[in-house]
Design a protein around this nucleic acid. Structure first.
Length: 262
DNA sequence: ATGGCCGTTAAAAACGGA
């Protein structure tokens, strides 16, 4: 079973690439971020044609998240945004997913964590508030759903291995101790960083700036993550970054991250 | 060798992204 997350940076622009990739890779479950379109513009018909059921929470211009499940899998009990947080921004979608051919359902949580812009800014404070609300809600969600996957664009690196220039970017947005403490707190809830269960190396990135040849020079950050609960940990087989998607025409600045579970 | 972005918007420069 393959479970993927991808910040598409505009679903309207990236739809052809998404459809190509779904046809090639046939992931069972997909979390999408930065749809940048309102609910009534979500391309559910094209996705159904491609063989995927979808649930989404859109927003005009910014943000927007969705979950896809490959048919004849099912997607039920959809939750949109955090219950404990009054939030105008579309940043979280959760659902109970039963991929085709599996018996036990999974609880899947897709997130687009706020960027934070700069430490000390209002947007940074919002990021911290949002992460605290996520943690509070997730503690209960994990108790209700032991088989849980939390994935998406976290806009936070775990440590220096996730940063192309750790010295130059020390204390910069995505790299502060305050942000990283939130990631560690999520791990203390009983979640595991799927990629790090398999590969301890540096230089594995999911995002590269569009400017200054950052991708060919591999000047990137690992800020997209798939976290799995304790019950799923023994099932983790592989976790791969789909760098090939970053090389196609009109790429997103993020590459998809794909987890293979038994 | 050097510098080079992209997507959005009541629609041109401004904003946000990371």
């Amino acid at each position: 079973m393959q479970i993927a997350t991808w910040n598409v940076n505009s679903l309207a622009v990236r739809l052809p690439q998404l459809l190509d990739w779904l046809a090639e890779r046939a992931p069972d479950v997909v979390a999408l971020q930065e749809l940048k379109l309102p609910d009534d513009k979500f391309p559910h018909e094209a996705l159904a044609q491609a063989g995927y059921h979808a649930a989404w929470l859109g927003q005009k211009t910014y943000n927007g998240v969705a979950l896809l499940v490959r048919a004849p899998g099912t997607l039920t009990d959809v939750q949109r945004n955090l219950p404990g947080l009054a939030d105008e921004q579309a940043r979280l979608i959760a659902a109970t997913v039963r991929p085709a051919g599996t018996e036990a359902p999974l609880r899947v949580v897709g997130v687009y964590v706020p960027n934070g812009q700069a430490p000390g800014s209002d947007k940074f404070a919002y990021k911290m508030r949002w992460l605290q609300a996520l943690r509070d809600w997730l503690a209960d969600e994990l108790a209700r759903h032991p088989r849980l996957v939390l994935m998406g664009d976290f806009n936070i690196t775990f440590d220096d291995r996730d940063v192309w220039d750790p010295e130059g970017l020390r204390g910069a947005i995505h790299c502060t101790d305050e942000e990283r403490a939130h990631l560690q707190a999520l791990l203390r809830l009983g979640l595991h960083d799927a990629l790090r269960l398999l590969d301890g190396g540096a230089g594995l990135y999911t995002w590269w700036d569009y400017r200054q040849l950052a991708f060919p020079k591999n000047r990137g950050l690992r800020i997209d993550h798939i976290l799995v609960s304790e019950a799923l940990r023994p099932l983790v087989r592989a976790c791969a970054i789909e760098r090939a998607l970053r090389k196609r025409p009109q790429p997103s600045d993020h590459a998809p991250l794909v987890l293979t579970l038994n």
